[in-house]
Simulated scan of single mutants.
Amino acid sequence: MKAGAGPAILIDMAAGDELLPKPTGPGGTGNGPAVSRREFDALFASVRTWGRWTPADRGAWNRVTADHVRRAMAEVRTGTVVPMALPWNTRPAPDNKRPALHHMTDLGDVESPEPSTHKDFIAADYHGKGVTHLDALCHIAYRGQLYDGRAAREVVDAAGARFGAVSALGPLVTTGVLLDLPAALGTRWLEPGQAVHADDVIAAEEALDVTIGEGEAVLLRTGGVRRRVELGAWDPDTASAGFHVDAVPLLAERGVVLLGSDGDSDVRPSPVDGVHSPVHALAVAAMGVPLLDNLDLEALSAATAEAGRHRFLFVVAPLNVPGGTGSPVSPIAVL
């Protein structure tokens, strides 16, 4: 383990018992070690890819070539299609403070002319915890700058974003990797507030017999959806499992193009002083890597376990919203 990298996932291969790391963060939440703002700024600079790609507002998605897509298609063996979106959630809850809207606008009660129709309306303030969504590159600024050093105030206004909008991304088709931490640990879920460190990623790769490659999408399963079903909702803004910032250099080195999670990829509480979503800042603003938040990875966990492999064809197509900061999405995996 690198110095200051935090507790690793310990896997006793001889005994077959997996041990959760001991809590080390503030309040015993396991989200540490703490990172100063100065350390974070140095980390931001070290993973920054500004000026690397054209067009810049597609960021790391520029890595994905036709060869990547062909290799992803080769991952399909059984043809099993697994959706990863949460149900459209209109009920208030601790993790759904701004519920989505859905109501009928036409109940087929017009007698003439035929045929009758049924119509509905949906809407969502989707950048929260209740809707599966994609974060575009204009969604996150750090120290006033979007990805590629664009000043946020100059390119984002009430009309939307003129750089880094979701409409610039288009659909992504590549190889997906499920980093199933509970499966690697032999536990039901990670507890809210538990950080996933670089050493944990490597240990999980070994346990799951999978290696993250360049141009691939990485999906982190913490088991939060299963925990919610069994124990009830909690406020994930207060505590949620996710990546510690010390895992980001490894992911940057591997050349990932997208990060997703059944949370929002960040461990909470944040271990970084004065930065509430440090993985968001590093991934989106520094590396140009979009994020998928609030996935349901339970069916994918079961499917990959049955198939005995954790790689698959991954497809996500955001809505074409000019100037949009992201989009509700329904990603799919095909095994």
Rank of each mutant, 00 (worst) to 15 (best):
D293W: 12
A252P: 11
E205W: 00
D266V: 10
D235L: 06
D296E: 04
F314E: 12
V248Y: 06
V315G: 02
D246P: 01
S327R: 12
S240K: 08
A302F: 00
A203Y: 05
G255F: 03
R221S: 12
P290A: 10
S301F: 07
V316K: 04
L251P: 02
D262Y: 03
P290H: 05
G324Q: 09
L292V: 09
G308A: 03
P290M: 11
S327V: 07
L282Y: 11
A247E: 06
V321T: 15
P290Q: 05
R311K: 15
D235A: 01
V248C: 10
V284H: 09
D262R: 03
G242T: 03
L219P: 03
G263A: 11
F243C: 05
A217D: 08
D235W: 02
D266I: 11
P331H: 06
L297G: 00
D262E: 05
R227Q: 06
P322A: 13
V229F: 07
L208F: 07
D199M: 00
L282G: 10
V229M: 09
A252R: 15
V267Q: 02
D264C: 09
W234Y: 00
D246M: 00
S277K: 14
E298N: 05
V201T: 11
T325L: 15
G242V: 02
D209N: 12
L231Y: 04
A233I: 01
L313E: 10
F312Y: 13
V225Q: 08
V289T: 08
W234G: 02
G232Q: 06
G224M: 00
V229Y: 01
D264P: 03
